[in-house]
């Protein structure tokens, strides 16, 4: 049972308008059968300070990452996690969060690894809901647990590993980090030094398109013509391209993966979640410094 899509005119130009809902739509559909709202933030305590009524919390780090290996949780853990949040395989899941839905997009991408069909983003995220005076409640939502089938992740379609990137040279790579990280002035996002790497710079031939360019002032996604101008004209992507996006640990590039896949309609876009924290510490991989993409490595 899924909930009707948001027919907002502002979404119809996008490749997959059913992947976005507006704050108006959410206000009208809160409590609808078959809908579960998920908050996913960078700050692990933000949900506790107040959240959209009925929303459940999924934390990118403590819930979605494997606690031991650098990987995502497996099918059994995912089933237990989302089942405990009242999410069935056919539930419509709407995810929202802080920082322009940065972590919400990451959670959506992880849900997609498990093939959850109907998962959408609240356009504008927490900031827009709040700016419009949207209601918040503080008690943790305790939905009745439901059964979710154990489905193993399918990493092949939308996730890239280091070897995939090495085999990808000659095809487009998008680096979504800040210009300072791209050029090699620093290895960490401003104010995010905790995930260091041993070398600075970028993967040779990658185009620099910081992820936040896709977001307008009010936190919503930019219009299709604006996005076309950023990614097609600015970064030179063309229809049919096989694209890999990366950042530092794969969170910001999950946001860009969403834009390229669901708004612009590129097929087969993959997110390299090992990203710079793996590449920048790996032995004998090519690295380019400076503001230019650099030559395609010959292998």
């Amino acid at each position: 049972m899924t909930v009707e899509v948001d027919p907002s005119a502002s979404f119809t130009a996008f490749a997959h308008p059913s992947r976005l809902v507006s704050t108006d739509w959410l206000r009208a559909n809160l409590g609808a059968p078959g809908l579960v709202v998920v908050e996913s933030d960078e700050d692990v305590l933000l949900y506790e300070t107040g959240h959209i009524p009925g929303a459940v919390k999924v934390d990118w780090h403590t819930d979605l990452n494997d606690p031991v290996e650098r990987d995502y949780i497996d099918g059994a853990r995912f089933a237990a996690l989302v089942g405990s949040k009242g999410i069935s395989r056919d539930t419509t899941v709407v995810i929202y969060g802080d920082k322009n839905n940065w972590w919400a997009a990451y959670a959506l991408w992880v849900f997609t690894l498990f093939g959850h069909a109907d998962v959408r983003l609240l356009d504008g995220g927490r900031a827009k809901w709040e700016a419009e005076g949207g209601e918040y409640v503080t008690p943790t939502s305790r939905p009745a647990a439901v059964d979710y089938p154990v489905v193993e992740r399918n990493d092949s379609a939308i996730r890239a590993f280091k070897d995939d990137v090495l085999a990808h040279f000659g095809k487009p790579l998008i680096d979504v980090r800040s210009p300072e990280e791209y050029s090699g002035e620093r290895t960490t996002a401003p104010a995010y030094p905790e995930e260091g790497s041993l070398r600075a710079g970028h993967i040779p031939s990658a185009q620099s398109v910081p992820w936040g360019k896709a977001v307008a002032e009010d936190g919503t996604f930019r219009t299709l013509p604006e996005l076309e101008s950023i990614y097609r004209i600015g970064a030179g992507l063309t229809t049919g391209d096989d694209v890999i996006a990366y950042c530092r640990i794969g969170e910001r590039s999950a946001h860009t993966w969403f834009v390229l896949t669901h708004l612009l309609g590129f097929e087969g876009v993959r997110n390299y979640d090992g990203s710079w924290t793996e590449w920048g510490s790996a032995v004998r991989v090519p690295i380019a410094m400076g503001a230019e993409p650099g030559a395609i490595p010959i292998r």
Partner: peptide
């Protein structure tokens, strides 16, 4: 800031 409760904590 208020919107960074973990850091405030």
């Amino acid at each position: 800031p208020r919107e960074a409760p973990t850091t405030r904590g």
